[in-house]
Amino acid sequence: MTETRSTWFGRGRTRALLSAGLLLGAGAVATSAYWTSSAKVTGTTITAGAMNIDLANDVAVKPETYTWSGLNLAGMTAGSTAAAVLKVSNNSTGALTFSYRVQAAATNASGLGGALRLTVLSGGTVSGSTCTGGTAIGSGGATLNGFDQPAAADLAPGQSASLCVQVGLPTGTGVAAGSTSTVTFTFPATQVHS
């Protein structure tokens, strides 16, 4: 009995000492997440799910393409504007918050796309054919083609933002009657770590 016990005793000490390596590793892993080159601390949570930015019809499709009938830009005349609200939603599964940008482009074969002006108000409302209230994204009345501005606020899962979008054709614009253009609003979103 004594002999057997001493045999186990000797081998057990080595294994027990080795097991302390687990603490070394656990300690290293636990703190390494807090070591980053910048001040921002991140990454300690593993987040399952998939991120989705969605527009009015709430389809969790990547990438979503939405034909926006709410904004009527047919039959514009010099000096006219049209406005409508577009809902941008975070329909992510899992705790995925994102920041997003508002980009706009217009085909310009007839000169119409280049003449259009854009105002985007986050949280704004439609008043007649213009947008009022809310927070301006970029400057009001900016050239639509090539518009690219960060949105005012990040969206947490389940949150949505109502963007009032106003598009106008300035007075004194020499665009031929019957000219057409396809206007595209793009909302690229990137996951943020809070």
Binding site: D54, L55, T65, F98, A106, G113, S181, T182, T186, F187
Partner: peptide, 9 residues
């Protein structure tokens, strides 16, 4: 991710 809305003017 990105979403796109199109309007004909």
């Amino acid at each position: 991710d990105s979403a796109t809305a199109t309007v004909d003017a």
